[in-house]
Structures are given as structure tokens and as C-alpha cells.
Design a protein around this nucleic acid. Structure first.
Ligand SMILES: [Mn+2]
Ligand SMILES: [Mn+2]
Ligand SMILES: [Zn+2]
Ligand SMILES: [Zn+2]
Lengths: 151, 151
DNA sequence: TCATCAACTGATACCAGGTGTCAACTGGTG
DNA sequence: CACCAGTTGACACCTGGTATCAGTTGATGA
């Protein structure tokens, strides 16, 4: 589990200034257990709302944190991006279409496919995107009774 | 290779009416060789532009065609969706970050992963999303000289 | 401790892509 | 050819995201 201190160290280590807004975003980000969207964060710490951080700063900071691998950007079933902070390193997620809960997995089936793809297509492969969608256990139960939760 | 007639038959087969706008969208769609966005199609056959079809109709028709597996919806390197019509069936694409060109591949490395994921996470798995990003051969060359093409 | 200044911020305005509405229209059927 | 559910498209609207830029501030070193 990453702490605010850890993340702050990482920021400094990469030449970023440790600013008040940045620290606040980091703190907020680490509190989420589920994937969250940029707009959710805007609602939580954005100007006028809970905090006083500009929309642009929030978007910028998320980008930085993702580039430093502190956050993983994933794609929700609705196609919109979200962020999650589980831990460092390459991973993918299985995301619940009902409640948004994500579970990470570290085995990447694409990696072993890359050489063959590169050879067959002559593409220079740089990146990939993999999301698995489904319904989590608790949403499976609520599907039989009411509509699933959303938090 | 799918023809307009084929697609029209598929539409009717699924209880959709064969309307003038729908046919025009189908025709336009089949002419693309590269992935295209909804807005691109709006520019091509949208009201006032080349044609006279409303934005809403275009978006609706694309959704229908994707649901019928006539089109595959893929995600571009910039994160925005695009459509491509190669042929029917489950496939994924490797997309060029330079020019948007996509090459399909039919081998899906996720399929064999699903049982283990379902067992480990207790999720009910419904779908997945896989895109591979890179640079196509022709954009690799132009990278050394000018900026890559865009068509 | 303080002066300096590049990095950073956030208000504002803007934009693209996409959706909801609803009166008018039309393909297909009998 | 009358009928009407399915469909259309103009329009208003919304969300998520970006560009700009004058003002602010964290880090550095004197
Ligand atoms: Mn991977
Ligand atoms: Mn697949
Ligand atoms: Zn769930
Ligand atoms: Zn290319």
C-alpha cells in the first residue's frame, strides 16, 4: 500500500514540485478504494466543492501520477476512463458493470503475443489496453432482487 | 468482404427498417478502409456536409451496426472510439498511433484466461476490450523525416 | 532568512463528442 | 392506399476535457 509520503517522494524524485494542490490530490486519490473518474475528484476537491483546486490542476495531476505509474488509468464498461491506485507495476483489471468495482490481475496475456504480432504486422508495438468486464459477486446477488449498488 | 446488400439483409433480419438514411450510412461505412469516427461520418454524410443525415441518426445507426457485429468498435490511441468494418466475428486490432491504420488479428489471448479469472475473482465475465498500439511500417519511415500521414 | 524565477495554479472561455426530446415523416404491412 | 410503429433530424443541452495566461508559490542558493 502506497502512502502520501511515498507518492510525494516519487514526485520530487522526478523533478516535480511538491505543491499544496498536488499534495491534496494525492491525499484524496489514496483514499479511494474503487476506481474514480477525474470529474469525481473535481467534485470532491474541486473549487467550491469540498476543496479549492482547479479542474485543470486535477486533470494535470492525474496525468502526472499515471505517467509515474502511481495510478493506473483503466476504462470503464461505459467507455470512460477512470483511475485506480492499487500498487506499482503493469496490471490489468476486471471491472464490474454494476458498481464499478475493479479487481486487478498481474498476468498479462498480451506480452507473449507481442513478438508474433510485431513480426506478422511489421508494426512497432508500444503499448496495449486490456480491460475485462463482468459482474462482481455482490452485484450478481442484487441482480436477482433490486438494481446493483453504485459505490 | 461485406456488401451493402448483405448488411441490408442483416438489418431486416433483425427487425430493423430499411430506411433511406440507414442505407446511406451503410454505403458510406463500407467505403472506408481505415477506422473512422462517428464525427468523420457526420462530416461525410451529415446534414449540410456531403449528405443530409442527422447527427443522431448517424450515431444510432453506428450503434446498431456494431450490435449486429457488422462494425467493430475499437479504441484509438487517443482513447476515442472508432469503427471498422473488416468482417464478422470476434477480433482485435493493432492501431497505428501515427495514422490510425488498424490491422486486425483474430487470436484472442483473453479467451483462455477467462475461466481462471472467473474462478479467482468470482466475477461473472461478460466482455473484454483489447487494443494494441504501435507505429505502422510507413509511419516508422516518416518518423525519421517528416511527421506521419493522417489518412 | 530572503530574493529570485521557473514551475505551477486556477479562472475563464472554449471545444468536441455525444445525448434527450419530440413533432414530422415513412417503410412495410394488410 | 390507409395506417401506424419505427424512424428521422433539428435543436437544445450536457459532460468531459483543453488552451490561455495573469498571478502565485516552492525550491534554491546567497
Ligand atoms: Mn498488459
Ligand atoms: Mn478478445
Ligand atoms: Zn459490482
Ligand atoms: Zn501509421
Amino acid at each position: 500500500m502506497l502512502t502520501s509520503r511515498d507518492v510525494e517522494a516519487i514526485l520530487i524524485q522526478h523533478g516535480y514540485r511538491l505543491t499544496r494542490p498536488r499534495a491534496a490530490v494525492v491525499d484524496a486519490v489514496l483514499k479511494y478504494t474503487h476506481p474514480f473518474t477525474a470529474e469525481q475528484l473535481v467534485a470532491d476537491v474541486g473549487t467550491g466543492k469540498g476543496g479549492s483546486i482547479g479542474r485543470a490542476t486535477i486533470y494535470r495531476t492525474l496525468e502526472i501520477l499515471a505517467s509515474l505509474d502511481v495510478l493506473t488509468r483503466l476504462i470503464q464498461p461505459d467507455g470512460h476512463p477512470a483511475y485506480i491506485c492499487d500498487s506499482l507495476g503493469h496490471r490489468h483489471h476486471i471491472v464490474c458493470s454494476g458498481c464499478g468495482t475493479a479487481v486487478a490481475f498481474t498476468f498479462c496475456p498480451v506480452q507473449e503475443l507481442v513478438p508474433a504480432l510485431a513480426r506478422d504486422t511489421a508494426f512497432e508495438i508500444h503499448d496495449h489496453l486490456l480491460e475485462v468486464f463482468g459482474v462482481c459477486p455482490s452485484c450478481q446477488v442484487s441482480a436477482t432482487s433490486a438494481g446493483g449498488p453504485r459505490a
